[in-house]
Design a protein around this nucleic acid. Sequence first.
RNA 1: GGAGAGAUGGCCGAGUGGCUUAAGGCGCACGCUUGGAAAGCGUGUGUACGUUAAUAGCGUACCGAGGGUUCGAAUCCCUCUCUCUCCGCCA
Length: 422
Amino acid sequence: MHDIRALRADPAAFDADLARRGIEPVSAKLLAWDEERRQAQTVLQEKQGRRKALAREIGTLKRSGGDSSDLEAEGLALRAEMEALEEEVDALGRESTALLANLPNRLDATVPDGPDESANVVQHEWGTKPTFTFTPKQHFELGEMLKQMDFATAAKLSGSRFVVLRGSIARLARALGQFMLDLHVTEHGYTETQVPVMVNDDAMYGTDKLPKFADQSFRTEDGRWLIPTAEVPLTASVSGDILEALALPLRMTALSQCFRSEAGAAGRDVRGMLRQHQFEKVEMVSVTIPEESDAEHERMTRCAEKVLEELNIPYRRVLLCAGDTGFGAAKTFDLEAWLPGQDAWREISSCSNTRDFQARRMNARYRPQAGAAPAFVHTLNGSGLAVGRTLIAVMENYQNEDGSITVPDVLRPYMGKIEKIS
RNA sequence: GGAGAGAUGGCCGAGUGGCUUAAGGCGCACGCUUGGAAAGCGUGUGUACGUUAAUAGCGUACCGAGGGUUCGAAUCCCUCUCUCUCCGCCA
């Protein structure tokens, strides 16, 4: 959600910012509605004041046995006028909100221009791509050879874009989740959190998944949503709060199942575990004061990178361009892991600073100093990491010619000390 | 799933249509008092929007949420949400 006051102060800058995302200018329309609404509201407030005075006079008259019929008639007439005005004020507010709720966040000045992922900018690369004396296989070939990754059974149970894992691959997935969670909790200062995977409209709206992306998520029959990411419950946990400045930053992490309908992704990544309706992810969320969110963004991205470094998986950090930056983000770094089987870099994490965009939608604030007026917090979210995709990266990078998979050192404590899956 | 009771400011709590401009208490802040503190006394104490140069004033709204009745609603009516108690079911 945008600050109408910021828009009033500099409408040209507002339109110019959104133009980078290909949005038509809207400030003139919004400002006209805003002007109209404020005028109507002022008149309405005057009438409310008159109503208050009238009611008090009538009360006093009645107690002393006087005749209040003239005043009551005025009150009745006043009510009719106010109903029309109220409707006008509400309607103008609704129209503005409906438009504003569908406008993406303003971009950080450092975000490069560009229409799509082709204009993203690689910031740095880490690690050495493994060399093989054979042609490396894709993860689903390895998984099916091991008979521990079963798409056919998942299809029988649930349909396409689901998987059944068994044996050591299932354990590897569990090990990865535990390892990541432990790393963020014990070394990165995040608070381990277990969250509901079903949430209401407010939580989805506050984290900018509604109204625009309703078709990307699954809705239950009783009107709840299966979370597309633990970002939703973690971030929305501070909705409506006024936090103490001393309590910030808040750092939370959760391992959760995530559910995405993948509408519009028909035909993309249909093979394997890369794009599923259900997957596990370790999510990090930070809530900070505005002055610190840029530093927190870098810190969070480093926390995600650390997971890949500990696992010794080559990756690169990519700064998303204007056209590829998500709806709610002011700036996003993606981490892309090297997948030898695919011979490609694939997204494995996405770390975003939404600044006060989500905080406004969910009314999450803090008090800068004792006695000072509350101000909006900044919220950040990042994957640390997507477990399913990390499983793929481990399998493809650690594969051997015979189809076995060497277990990365840091995961062996979680794998009963076994060194190889075969 | 069934039956019942609730939701009032940071907290406790009064309030069954106008005398409430939400009583009273606790907490907190400031002041007086004191050698210093406690006690005591006094004053203040939320959020949003509008107006404004103003985070000063002034105005309006807000008693779980949303509707309704009324000249007037914390109070009456309807719907919903959440909490608690008992019963049933259940990992």
